[in-house]
Design a protein around this nucleic acid. Structure first.
Lengths: 171, 171
DNA sequence: CAATGACATGTCAAGATTGACATATAGACG
DNA sequence: CGTCTATATGTCAATCTTGACATGTCATTG
């Protein structure tokens, strides 16, 4: 599973609480792998039991601070060397195959919503891009991921605009 | 869930067997929503019980041919008008965030493999694109999805090439 | 000082997904 | 006639994911 490795991987950079991991996922990793607190907390308990992470301290409100152990780091690196699962799941992309079941006007509404969502997301990623120059190895890797998002979104926007013109012709 | 709607949606075009649906998913829908036979067959039984599809005949080797009922078609259209789930899951994309845990040489190997996979897939999609001119509404919708894949893959290839130059500088 | 919102952790049932196990037939080829 | 492959359907346990339920704390603001 990817979640467990992602959790250790984030903790390999710096110690964090479960809640801190949750927020970090929401901000960046969720673009590739969404995770909710109801998944993260039990998974942390499992990783702790397996010795892949350890608790290094505690914060206010019962917060528990974890960090990756050497075993955990080994495990992440091993994972990174295995073949990635290239399957991708996207409900929004799936729906495109069925746009012909709607009338062209409704299909256009859908595509326009997609385009707008892409634009919003792109603006968000561009804001993050402008925020700070990457300095550490970790920041440079995150920047590589970010640029991947930027290029993909620009392509998706271009596609949505083309697709809108296309369904226009369906009327 | 998306799978049940996708199954009805495919059956709205023409009657198919469970196996036919499986192969159809593998060829096209799997790019957006992978599904295995162990998911498809039980789901078809549920859709049948709910009256969203019906069996119209039988083929060799116990094959069962299904088609969408009017209720099923309604259900798909209702689904298409709801907000899509914009969450996307990609193990390969997630790994980018952790490339800094590998040495630059290994990161480059990963990115080169990604680039190659994208190129192979692009060639495959370009072959499908050249295959036949879309004529029916359904074919036109599939073409819209296909062009989405083409534009996205070209952007991903551009990104992978840039990322490779980037990690080159990490050495 | 009371209310609110962000912080912080947890559980659980329902549903979705995977990968393995299981079985059988039709057609093609040697 | 035997073998192999593609066709064809099914089940099941393990795992993953979701969304709801549940609880409590800290800091800010009115």
């Amino acid at each position: 599973m990817s979640l467990r490795h992602a959790l250790i991987g984030v903790l390999a950079d710096e110690p964090r609480t479960g809640y801190g991991l949750l927020k970090h996922f929401e901000q960046s990793l969720a673009y590739a792998w969404p995770a909710s607190h109801s998944q993260i907390y039990p998974e942390l308990a499992r990783l702790l039991a397996k010795g892949l992470i350890r608790q290094t301290g505690a914060g206010p409100r019962g917060a528990r601070v974890y960090e990756a152990t050497p075993d955990g780091l080994d495990e992440v690196c091993r994972w990174l060397r295995t073949e990635p699962d290239r399957r991708v799941r996207s409900d929004a992309a799936l729906r495109i195959f069925f746009l012909w079941l709607l009338d062209p006007g409704e299909a256009a509404v859908f595509l326009a919503a997609e385009r707008d969502r892409f634009r919003t997301l792109l603006a968000e990623l561009e804001r993050i891009e402008a925020e700070e120059e990457p300095r550490t190895p970790k920041q440079r890797a995150y920047r590589v991921a970010l640029v991947g998002g930027l290029l993909t979104l620009r392509a998706r926007i271009e596609w949505a605009e083309w697709a809108l013109r296309e369904v226009e012709a369906w009327r």
